[in-house]
């Protein structure tokens, strides 16, 4: 049998190069494992060491408001960003003319390139004062809705402002992803719909949206992943308090994990540092789960998309 004979000569260059590449690839796995391990190791003293003033009632009652704030701010951001992202993606893929659409796509991509600290600066010095009168109006006229109730913040540094900033920040990546998926809609399906005399909206409803639904879901999940981890914009804009509150217009808002770390870490020492790292581990776990679900949705779609 010829195929059972010993393997033919392997060249030194090939062996070295292939192994270099292999170790680079595997280093990704090692790095992530190291990240998890080190964060874990540095979190342990927060539980075993002497209690910290900030967390006198235990770690979980310390971290809970931050978990709530993180999720709440991200959900608000996502609720605003998702319909807008779908609209933008549709506009670029199916409404604007091709040349114009390219320029528009570039403009939206620019939003993604702006550093988050600049968003923070803009959010607090421009957006918050701009929104403040509207918050008053919302509170006066729609105050019977619980989330708009309470004493309105005078500065505009509220949960809703943070949600809007987060929405602007995750919009570009979501819009770009959804746009890509919409553009992959099989031409034949679209033309079939148009040939039946459908209007543009009917064509989108018949061909584009059903095809793009998994893409929209995964884009939303990825946007959520981003929003959960966003730090500086939240740290700068939000006026925080250690509470769990659904009210979005007041000056007592639940802070997010990331923003709390950024605000406390530079001044923290001793066990407090370990406590903050432990909250970081919680954030890491939350974003990991969200991103994994997003990837899982995408990969499932890739397997079944026999259409292209």
């Amino acid at each position: 049998m010829t195929d059972t004979k010993p393997k033919a000569v392997r060249r030194l260059g090939d062996v070295v190069f292939a192994n270099l590449a292999f170790f680079a690839g595997v280093s990704i796995l090692a790095t992530l494992a190291t990240v998890a391990a080190f964060l874990f190791a540095q979190s342990v003293p927060a539980f075993t060491g002497p209690p910290i003033d900030a967390a006198s009632e235990g770690f979980f009652s310390y971290v809970l408001p931050f978990v709530f704030g993180t999720v709440y701010a991200s959900v608000i951001g996502l609720a605003i960003a998702t319909p807008l992202a779908i609209g933008i993606a549709l506009y670029i893929s199916h409404f604007a003319n091709r040349k114009f659409a390219q320029v528009l796509g570039y403009a939206v991509d620019l939003l993604a390139a702006i550093p988050s600290v600049v968003y923070g600066l803009w959010g607090i010095l421009v957006l918050a004062p701009f929104l403040s009168p509207t918050f008053n109006w919302l509170n006066e006229n729609l105050g019977w809705i619980p989330i708009f109730a309470g004493q309105v913040s005078a500065t505009g540094r509220t949960m809703l402002t943070v949600g809007i900033v987060l929405a602007i920040m995750v919009l570009p990546i979501m819009a770009a992803l959804i746009r890509e998926i919409f553009l992959q809609t099989p031409r034949l399906h679209e033309e079939a719909a148009l040939a039946l005399g459908a209007t543009r909206w009917e064509m989108i409803k018949m061909a584009v949206l059903p095809f793009g639904r998994p893409g929209i879901i995964s884009a939303a999940m990825l946007g959520l992943g981003r929003a959960l981890g966003e730090t500086m914009a939240v740290a700068m804009v939000l006026s925080p308090a250690a509470v769990v509150s659904f009210a979005v217009l007041t000056s007592t808002n639940s802070n997010t994990i990331a923003a709390n770390i950024a605000l406390q870490f530079p001044e923290a020492g001793g066990n407090y540092t370990n406590l903050l790292i432990a909250t970081g581990l919680v954030l890491f776990a939350i974003t990991m789960v969200v991103n994994m679900i997003a990837r899982w949705v995408i990969s499932r779609r890739a397997e079944f998309s026999g259409a292209n």
Partner: peptide, 14 residues
């Protein structure tokens, strides 16, 4: 893909 989603503050903590 998972690494793409690591929040930047977690990278700092690491």
């Amino acid at each position: 893909d998972v690494m793409t989603g690591v929040p930047s503050i977690v990278a700092g903590l690491f």
